[in-house]
């Protein structure tokens, strides 16, 4: 019962979010702000995590394929496919759920409990659309760039780690990352992360928007935002993989 109640309320909120925007100029301005806040501000964390994950995947693959029957290019190939298929979309999305999900829920939740949302409504503003739509647009547009960046940095991290620990040569790695390359994997990852971004933003906004009470409740909303976003990312990962790769 509780689940269906929330799902229904979530879709009703989305309905209001996608109502016709009144003053396009204001929405445009807000979207630019959100790209900065949600997107540009996440570049650092995504870069750091990607470089280390690329490094670890490479070293682990190298140690697990020490037997000479495995060709050395396997290392680069494994690193590339892991990054392209799962890491740069799903894992990055999970990290973003923690970072931007909690940010969105607490920002909107605080506006709710301090009556800033009421103040918008009283001025005739569709607060759901005004507060949430720019965030959705910003994150759905920007996260694919973060995903691409994560792929490149991850592959770079793998190269640094592999060469500096001496488990392979640059030639092996470069050959590996080009070997049996399927460009569609990139499209697959970009579609996935755009959908994950939509889930993170809307679920977190939902929890923030319907906070009631004080700072304690805002904290709770923010936790729920991260947990529920993560669960739905994992769920949709299975569904999307089946749909897009089968």
């Amino acid at each position: 019962m509780g689940l269906f109640y929330h799902i229904g309320k979530y879709f009703l909120l989305l309905f209001r979010v996608f109502a016709k925007p009144e003053k396009l100029k204001i929405y445009y301005r807000e979207t630019i702000k959100e790209i900065d806040k949600l997107g540009i501000n996440s570049i650092g964390i995504v870069a750091i995590i990607s470089i280390f994950m690329g490094a670890v995947i490479t070293i682990q693959t190298a140690y697990n394929t020490e037997n000479p029957i495995y060709p050395k290019y396997l290392i680069g190939l494994t690193a590339r496919d892991t990054l392209l298929l799962e890491f740069s979309s799903t894992i990055v999305a999970l990290i973003l759920a923690g970072k931007i999900g909690s940010n969105i829920a607490s920002e909107i939740g605080t506006m709710r409990v301090t009556e800033q949302i009421d103040a918008l409504e009283i001025m005739g503003v569709n607060s759901a659309s005004y507060l949430i739509l720019p965030k959705i647009i910003a994150s759905v547009i920007f996260t694919p760039f973060l995903c691409l960046m994560s792929m490149l940095i991850g592959i770079f991290g793998g190269w640094i780690a592999g060469v500096s620990t001496g488990v392979m040569t640059t030639q092996d790695y470069v050959y590996g990352i080009q070997y049996a390359f399927i460009p569609y994997y990139i499209v697959y990852a970009l579609i996935k992360i755009a959908i994950f971004a939509f889930l993170i933003t809307t679920i977190s906004a939902y929890h923030g928007y319907y906070s009631y009470g004080g700072s304690l409740e805002v904290g709770k909303s923010s936790t729920k935002a991260v947990v529920h976003s993560s669960i739905f990312i994992l769920l949709f990962n299975v569904i999307l993989t089946q749909l897009l790769l089968s």
Binding site: M111, Q116, A119, I122
Partner: peptide
Amino acid sequence: RKQIGMLFQGGALFD
């Protein structure tokens, strides 16, 4: 709504 002004308990200024 153009004809309505409201002052909220905490002020509710946009942070």
